[in-house]
Amino acid sequence: MKVIFLKDVKGKGKKGEIKNVPDGYARNFLFKKGLAIEATPANLKELE
């Protein structure tokens, strides 16, 4: 799953980066803790 990092996550990504991460990791950790959001076309446009 492609995500946009909202905060730095040690060993995974830095704020503003767009990366592919495992689906479970994104849903169960990154999204729940507010560390990242899904890289949807709308979210990507908002980032620019």
Rank of each mutant, 00 (worst) to 15 (best):
N28T: 08
A26Q: 06
E38Y: 07
K2W: 15
G13T: 03
K19D: 04
M1S: 05
K15G: 03
K10H: 13
A36E: 00
M1L: 15
A39K: 02
K19Q: 08
G11Q: 05
D8H: 08
E38D: 04
T40I: 06
K7E: 11
G34P: 00
P41A: 14
P22D: 11
F29K: 03
E48H: 13
D23Y: 15
L30V: 01
P41E: 14
K19R: 12
E17P: 00
G16T: 02
K7W: 09
K2R: 15
F31P: 01
V9Y: 04
K15V: 09
P41I: 12
K2G: 06
P22L: 08
N43D: 07
D8G: 05
R27E: 09
E48K: 06
V21A: 02
K19Y: 07
P41K: 11
K2S: 12
V9S: 02
A36N: 00
N28S: 09
M1H: 06
A26L: 08
L44N: 07
E38W: 07
I4K: 04
I4E: 02
G11I: 02
N20T: 15
N20A: 12
L30H: 00
E48G: 13
F5H: 00
E17R: 02
K2F: 15
N20F: 15
I37F: 04
G16R: 03
A42T: 10
K12P: 01
E48P: 11
N28F: 12
L6M: 06
L30G: 00
E48V: 12
K14H: 09
E46P: 07
A26D: 06
G24I: 13
K45N: 10
L44P: 04
K12D: 06
E17M: 06
D8V: 04
L30T: 00
F31E: 02
G16V: 00
D23P: 14
F29E: 09
L35R: 02
Y25T: 05
D8F: 08
A39G: 06
G34L: 08
L35V: 04
K7P: 00
V9M: 05
K19W: 08
F29S: 04
V21W: 03
L35Q: 04
G16S: 04
E46I: 11
L6Q: 03
E48I: 14
A42F: 09
A26Y: 12
K10R: 13
E17Y: 03
V21M: 12
F31Q: 02
